[in-house]
Design a protein around this nucleic acid. Structure first.
Lengths: 144, 144
DNA sequence: CAGCATCCAGACAGATACTG
DNA sequence: CAGTATCTGTCTGGATGCTG
């Protein structure tokens, strides 16, 4: 990865987070909150939402077919579903222009932008440790 | 949430990430990398992995049944599966003590710790915006 | 205790056809 | 163009019963 994200965040975010975690004593989190948060993460962290989020963040406002073309492998059904959920969760806006043929624009809300930002850390982690994980898997598979 | 995570990261991580994203011009990411990263995220970001990761990070080394008791709602099948995947991905270690009855310990590897750290941003986001999302959903549902 | 094997209902996701 | 509707196979995950 020649991506500048890495160097930028390696010192800021990840190290800060690690320092935080190292300092944090084992403390129970309210299980109700935990359940809700986990549920929320489950919905936003699926395959397609992540990619669409990323795309809208990078490219800004996009039409339905523009997104469909750029998100590789997504079916129109899943795209519709994903966009609806993102709209429902307040992550994206859907703007219908009453013309023929129809023209619908999608864009991230500030909430969507902040989520995209929050996922940076994971994105960077995945890029950084991709090879390590692949190797670990290979070792595990050949050993067993 | 009275969790200190919030105030800690609000200034560091999220704002830095937002600043970065705001400054970043629309640049294409290698789709192959994107696919791999997304695939990886898909595997690590599932419901149970996240909770087990969190638990092991907080509590350190734990036995099978200890984890089962604390991760609310997980079946033994899913726990086994989750732990195996985490082991395969190099996120956790599995230590079998050859005694009767069996005693198996699980603990995070440094890689697992770093992933847990990377997810901090998302975790914080979810805690912070839980209510906002709930409200957005309610608006969406009552409107439609 | 820590698990594996099996069965089964339900969710998920692709393909296809149709519409304002 | 941007969907909706439907049908269908696949995959997931829970419940149950059995072992070293």
């Amino acid at each position: 990865m020649e991506n500048p994200l890495k160097s930028r965040f390696e010192t800021d975010e990840i190290l800060a987070a690690q320092a935080y975690l190292a300092a944090e004593p084992p403390a129970d989190i309210d299980p109700r909150i935990e359940r809700l948060v986990n549920d929320l993460i489950g919905r936003i962290a699926d395959k397609w939402t992540l990619l669409v989020l990323e795309l809208l963040e990078e490219k800004g406002t996009q039409r339905f077919t523009q997104i469909a073309r750029q998100v590789d492998g997504i079916s129109q059904k899943m795209l519709t579903q994903t966009l609806r959920q993102m709209e429902r969760d307040g992550l994206a806006t859907r703007t219908v222009h009453p013309v023929v043929p129809p023209h619908v624009d999608y864009a991230l809300t500030p909430l969507g932008n902040s989520l995209s930002a929050a996922f940076c850390g994971v994105w960077i982690w995945a890029e950084k440790h991709l090879d390590t994980v692949e190797q670990a898997r290979h070792r595990f598979d050949t050993r067993a």
